[in-house]
């Protein structure tokens, strides 16, 4: 690159061409080089993101039939989806799940991160890894594990019921969602805690020193320094969590094979519904429409949260 510049520069200097053509030429070259740098990402992005989504959008305009094959139906899949009670059942389930689980998990992560940062605990490194570790356990393994732990007949809850003479069942249709919430919280609290923890670590030491000189106590420091510092990362974790909970799939997919009558249907979450539509119902077009609508829905909510979060941050 430096060689080419050395060649173009004297030319531009010695021959004053009208219209500043060499300048433009150089700018174009620079721009092209920029593209070359973006290319590795761009190509991958196109391959694994844009192409599949475009293909899904294309598929969603067709109806698959076992007799007669696929036929173009325009937007019929979308109109059908908006009138599909099973779809809305799944959507309302994940929305209410998100409303309850995400705040609980984030508050828990926040408290843990603040506790870590208070410097008053022993064995912090161990704690940090131990709390983060569930995130590294594959969801399938953790679901199996929790399935045994919460199982009534021979699991932990079976023993608890035996000792206390109670009749608790974590996998009744009315309680299954709570159990899934516990599994998800267990898995992701450490991850969120780590994000908060790293942000707190980046707070300049001088701020604390200034606070100490001003005579601020620990709670005051949390309120005036730590929480404001965490605001930006809070927005990020909320967005990640919403995206995550909207896509719940592993738990409801695996649980029915472990526990009977947990109330998990083939349309328990929108993701599970899309999977079952595509793979057992051979309705790929309809499943594609569902996936796209859910994607749009998720993006819209994540975007709203982001704008809201940014505005609040600016107000500060």
């Amino acid at each position: 690159m430096s060689a080419t510049e050395r060649m173009t520069r004297p030319a531009a200097a010695s021959v004053p061409l009208p219209g500043g053509a060499p300048q433009q030429y150089r700018r174009r070259r620079t721009r092209q080089i920029g593209w070359a740098f973006v290319a590795p990402f761009g190509i991958l992005f196109a391959l694994v993101f844009i192409v599949p989504i475009t293909y899904a959008a294309y598929l969603s305009l067709f109806q698959d039939r076992m007799v007669g094959g696929p036929s173009f139906v325009g937007l019929a899949n979308y109109t059908k989806l908006f009138g599909d009670a099973q779809f809305w059942d799944g959507v309302s389930r994940v929305v209410s799940f998100t409303l309850v689980q995400v705040p609980i998990m984030l508050v828990l992560a926040l408290v843990l991160a603040l506790a870590m940062d208070s410097m008053r605990l022993r064995g912090m490194r161990f704690m940090r890894v131990a709390i983060f570790l569930p995130y590294a356990v594959p969801a399938i393994v953790s679901t199996l594990m929790w399935g045994f732990m919460l199982g009534v007949r021979y699991g932990l809850f079976g023993s608890i019921n035996g000792w206390l003479g109670t009749d608790l069942d974590p996998f009744r249709p009315s309680t299954t969602l709570i159990s899934i919430g516990i599994m998800v919280t267990w898995a992701f609290t450490g991850y969120n805690m780590l994000i908060f923890d790293s942000v707190l670590k980046a707070v300049p030491q001088e701020l604390y020193e200034a606070a100490a000189i001003d005579g601020a106590g620990e709670l005051r420091v949390i309120r005036a320094i730590k929480l404001p510092a965490l605001r930006g990362s809070l927005v990020i974790t909320v967005i990640f969590s919403i995206i995550g909970t909207f896509q719940i799939f592993n738990e409801p997919q695996i649980l029915p094979s472990m526990v009977a009558n947990s109330g998990i249907t083939t349309y328990y979450t929108p993701n599970l519904y899309a999977f079952n539509l595509a793979f057992t119902g051979s309705q790929q077009g309809y499943a594609a429409a569902l996936a796209l609508v859910m994607a749009a829905f998720t993006i819209a909510i994540a975007y709203a949260v982001q704008i809201r979060g940014m505005r609040d941050a600016l107000d500060q």
Binding site: R153, S257, M258, V259, N261
Partner: peptide
């Protein structure tokens, strides 16, 4: 009606 076939139970 609590135990499903093929389960551990």
């Amino acid at each position: 009606t609590k135990i499903s076939a093929w389960s551990d139970d």
